[in-house]
Computed example of a mutant assay.
Amino acid sequence: MESTFMQTVRMRTDAAIASGDLQPIQAEQVVLQDQGLPFIVRWVAALAAKDAAGKPASQGAAATTLPGGPRDPDFNPFLSPDPALLVGPVGDHHVAILNKFPVCLHHLVLARREFAEQCSPLEAIDFQALATVLSAQGGLGFYNGGAAAGASQRHKHVQWIPASDQNASLRALGAGMPSDFPVGNLARHPVLPLTHCFVRVDAGQGVDIQASAASMLTAFSQACVALDLRADAAGLLPPCNMLVGDGWMLVLPRSQEHFQGVSLNALSFGGTIYVRDPAQIDAIRAAGPLQALASVAY
């Protein structure tokens, strides 16, 4: 039986599409193979609209739109979420919001109720929010830790997308890892040509929320130590991506956001690369997905 939370997500999505507050997903895609790994390269029209709106950069108060131009760069959509996109609370510290510029149906932002910097390290409360959704629905949780990692908002948040053959996941990468790998152990994937850390986690659909959150927090902390990710006044350096799903967590440091004009975020490392323009698909095909990913990592 579908959870009450997911029923609310579906109802809010349907209503927001009907009202025009959320645009239907329009996408074209190709599937590329690289070293035996499948990569979906998908053009999503909503991402071009996101660029046109402008990227918010800092904490702000009220929603404002500049006359004849893009949104105020100080606008923070997570402090006062659009009621048409608001799903509801997730625990005591987060709220679920439909992503204004979704890459798939039911794409959620799990945002802190109070402002914190996106580039600061993930904490127990962030994994508690992710565990609440993952334990009920499965799917993929992810984090873009800073602008170089693909984050477009300074307000602290993680994100979630449902499980689907068409959505990013860790299934393909996980298939190349030992199936009996113990929870808490760290490993590298034999094919990924970039600095990264895989950690086996006890997290996913049906797992106790508290146990799941604790397992993810421990895994993230271990990965940060292994990758020499350090927190200072500027946040976690270097910026990083985190993906969690299908019993695995992947953490990797980032050197830059773009490959030949294509913004790459955590989902790119989950096998789905989103482009703003169909012509950008050719750039990914020419270089190869793994080389594109390596160019923005270390």
Rank of each mutant, 00 (worst) to 15 (best):
T64W: 03
M177E: 12
A45K: 14
A49N: 09
L98G: 06
Y298L: 15
R112C: 15
A148M: 11
S169V: 04
H93L: 06
R254C: 08
C240G: 05
D21K: 07
E28K: 09
I125R: 15
M216Y: 02
L108R: 01
W160I: 01
G138D: 09
Q26E: 15
P73C: 08
V207A: 09
A62W: 02
A27G: 01
N241F: 02
Y143A: 02
V275K: 00
V95D: 04
C240M: 13
A211Q: 14
P182Y: 13
L140V: 01
L217V: 03
E257N: 10
P178W: 12
I161V: 14
R230H: 09
P253F: 07
V183K: 01
F181G: 00
S58R: 14
P81N: 08
L32Q: 10
Q205D: 02
W43H: 15
G68A: 04
T132K: 08
G204C: 07
G91E: 11
S3I: 02
H189F: 13
D246W: 04
G146L: 02
I17T: 09
V31S: 06
G145M: 05
G68K: 02
I273C: 08
V262H: 09
A63S: 09
A211Y: 00
D74G: 13
A286S: 13
Q33K: 10
V31N: 10
D72W: 00
G174P: 03
G206H: 07
H258L: 14
I40E: 10
A124F: 07
L79E: 13
S179Y: 04
R285F: 03
E2Y: 01
L264Y: 07
C119P: 02
A168P: 08
K55D: 08
S58T: 11
Q159H: 08
Q166E: 15
P193M: 12
E123K: 13
E114M: 09
L243H: 05
T8H: 11
P182W: 13
I284H: 07
T65N: 12
F142M: 03
V191Y: 10
A231E: 15
G36L: 06
M249A: 15
V30D: 14
G141V: 00
C104I: 00
L170T: 02
L122W: 03
Q26Y: 05
D14S: 11
R200M: 12
E114S: 15
V9H: 11
S120R: 13
T13D: 11
L194E: 06
L227H: 05
D282V: 02
A163W: 03
R188Q: 15
A214G: 10
A233F: 04
L237A: 12
M242R: 01
Y143S: 11
F75V: 13
L79I: 13
A48P: 00
L243Q: 05
A62I: 06
Q260H: 11
M177C: 10
